[in-house]
């Protein structure tokens, strides 16, 4: 995960990029490519689309860097750009919900020193999660991704999505309800977990 707060090095990179040094912006790309890519992949479900959206996100960030508010975390700012870009793309492609039998792109699973069985299970679980996400409308999907993969508070999600906190609560609740109904209706095999 990328740094959660704007640190001195990051401030230096931003100032350097604003002064016209692309090398400084390259540091920001290096630091934030994973969170941006993850969001785009979780939203769009295809690696090619995610790469394209990630690139577009950084280009937009570069062009509008002078509009960045230094009081805000850079991660939140760039994920705001990425979220809206992905929602726009989904709306344009009318991919709010994929067909029930749509198969998302296989997720890349780290294989370093892990047995093939574990890799297969991990890949299956990852694909399953991506399949769940693909069934959600774009707005709900973004809220779920920002909550679970980035650990953002409701207030931060509201700021990123430009909606109110009650709207975030509502979206998350509806998204969870939808996900739970998908799990129940498709009898997904979930391993036993601890009690609440």
């Amino acid at each position: 995960m990328a740094p959660r707060a704007t640190n001195p090095a990051e401030k230096r990179w931003i100032a350097g990029a604003l002064a016209g040094d692309p090398q400084e912006f390259a540091h920001l790309i290096q630091a934030y490519q994973n969170p941006v890519y993850n969001l785009c992949y979780r939203m769009l479900g295809q690696h090619e689309d995610a790469e394209d959206a990630t690139q577009e996100t950084f280009l937009r960030a570069y062009t509008h860097l002078h509009q960045y508010d230094s009081n805000r975390r850079f991660l939140n700012w760039i994920l705001t750009i990425a979220s809206h870009l992905c929602i726009d793309r989904l709306r344009k492609k009318k991919l709010h919900t994929l067909p029930i039998d749509a198969v998302p792109a296989p997720e890349q699973v780290h294989t370093n020193g892990v047995s093939p069985e574990h890799i297969a299970v991990a890949r299956e679980q990852a694909d399953e999660i991506q399949g769940w996400l693909a069934q959600l409308p774009a707005d709900y999907r973004t809220a779920i991704i920002l909550l679970y993969w980035y650990g953002f508070s409701y207030e931060e999600i509201a700021q990123i999505l430009h909606v109110s906190v009650p709207a975030v609560k509502s979206r998350l609740h509806r998204a969870r309800k939808k996900l739970a109904s998908l799990i129940t209706s498709h009898a997904v095999n979930i391993p036993a977990a601890s009690n609440p």
């Binding site: 995960m1 692309p22 912006f25 390259a26 790309i29 290096q30 490519q33 994973n34 969170p35 941006v36 890519y37 993850n38 992949y41 979780r42 690696h47 995610a50 790469e51 990630t54 690139q55 950084f58 280009l59 997720e107 890349q108 780290h110 679980q125 990852a126 999660i129 769940w132 779920i144 679970y148 993969w149 969870r176 996900l179 739970a180 799990i183 979930i190 977990a193 601890s194």
Partner: peptide, 23 residues
Amino acid sequence: LMDERLRAAPLQPAPDALAIEIV
């Protein structure tokens, strides 16, 4: 259970060459 699975899901890393392409 769904919540637990989602919380445990890892971050999908960007492909190695992506940063160079973006630069």
